[in-house]
Each structure stands twice: as structure tokens, then as C-alpha cells.
Simulated assay, not measured.
Amino acid sequence: MFDHVVFGVSDYAASKAFFLKALEPLGIEVVLEGPLGIELSADGKSSLCLFQTEEKPAHLHLAFTARTRQQVEDFHRAALEAGGKDHGAPGLRPHYHAHYYAAFIIGPDGHNIEVVCHEPEA
């Protein structure tokens, strides 16, 4: 679990649009936006913060928790519609554990965005 993750993006408008649409199935929305960037959260306890930068940081792997496998599937579909590139369709990843159900997308800056549900199929 994290309190907040902050990282720079090369195209603020494109990244904002991508993350808002891709993470909408998880209930993630704008908490705050100002001159320092945007803060996104679903629970008000942890947040993802993006800001415009010209620096070229290493690619990140961000994994978000889903409550259901349907949320994983909804994320994958929404992220593709938002312009993300498929990096692993929704499905079981038993090499992690028996109920690891995840999908992976490459976002606008090449970051590997994952949504995972650890629950058995309903």
C-alpha cells in the first residue's frame, strides 16, 4: 500500500486524459488540480500525482488493486480506448498465485500500468 506516488509526464494533457479514463472503473477521480499537477484518488487515503516535466525518468510499473475481476476487464477496455497499448490482456497469472487476475497496459509515457484482483472468481 502506498500513501502517494508522484511522477513526471511528458504530455500532461494526454496523461491526465489517459489515467482518468483508464482508472475510472476503479472509482479513481480528480482530488486536486493546480499549478503543480493533478492528484487522483479513489479512497482519499492514497493518491497518484502527475506533473509536467521535460526530464526522462525510467519507466514505472504501477499496480492498482481491483475489488473484482470485472474491474480488471473494465480497466483494460477503458485504457485501450484512452490510447494505451496492450501489454497483457485480463487473465490469471498463476505464477504469482492461484487467484492473481490482472491486466497490463503501456501508458502514454511507456509506464506499465497494471490492475490486479487477488480474489477468487465470484
Score class of each variant (00 low, 15 high):
D3N: 11
V5Y: 09
V6S: 03
V6L: 14
F7P: 01
G8E: 04
D11S: 10
D11Q: 13
Y12K: 10
Y12P: 00
Y12L: 15
Y12E: 07
A13T: 13
A14N: 11
K16F: 07
A17E: 05
F19C: 03
F19N: 02
L20N: 04
L20P: 02
K21N: 09
A22L: 05
A22S: 04
L23V: 12
L26G: 01
L26Y: 07
G27L: 05
G27S: 08
G27E: 12
I28D: 01
I28A: 00
I28V: 15
I28H: 03
V30Q: 02
V30C: 05
V30I: 14
G34R: 07
G34I: 06
G34S: 11
I38S: 00
E39T: 11
S41Y: 12
A42T: 12
A42K: 10
G44W: 05
S47N: 07
L48D: 01
F51H: 11
F51G: 01
T53A: 00
E54F: 06
E54R: 09
E54Q: 11
E55Y: 09
E55S: 06
K56A: 15
A58H: 07
A58S: 13
H59E: 08
L60P: 00
H61Y: 12
F64Q: 00
F64W: 08
F64A: 01
A66Q: 02
A66L: 09
R67N: 03
T68D: 00
T68Y: 04
R69L: 01
Q70F: 02
Q70R: 08
Q70Y: 04
Q71A: 05
V72Q: 01
E73S: 13
F75K: 00
H76P: 07
H76N: 07
R77Q: 12
A78F: 09
A78H: 11
A78K: 01
L80N: 04
E81D: 15
E81I: 08
E81Q: 15
A82Y: 12
A82G: 13
A82S: 14
G84L: 03
G84E: 07
K85A: 14
K85C: 09
H87Y: 15
G88N: 05
G88R: 05
A89R: 05
P90H: 04
G91M: 03
G91Y: 03
G91P: 08
L92R: 04
R93Y: 08
P94V: 14
P94Y: 04
P94W: 09
P94A: 04
H95K: 10
H97F: 15
A98W: 08
H99Y: 12
Y100M: 06
Y101I: 03
I105L: 11
I106K: 07
P108S: 13
D109N: 13
D109M: 10
H111N: 15
H111E: 15
H111F: 10
I113E: 00
E114M: 02
E114L: 02
C117W: 01
H118E: 14
H118C: 05
E119P: 03
E119L: 14
P120N: 09
P120Q: 13
A122Q: 11
A122N: 12
A122C: 09
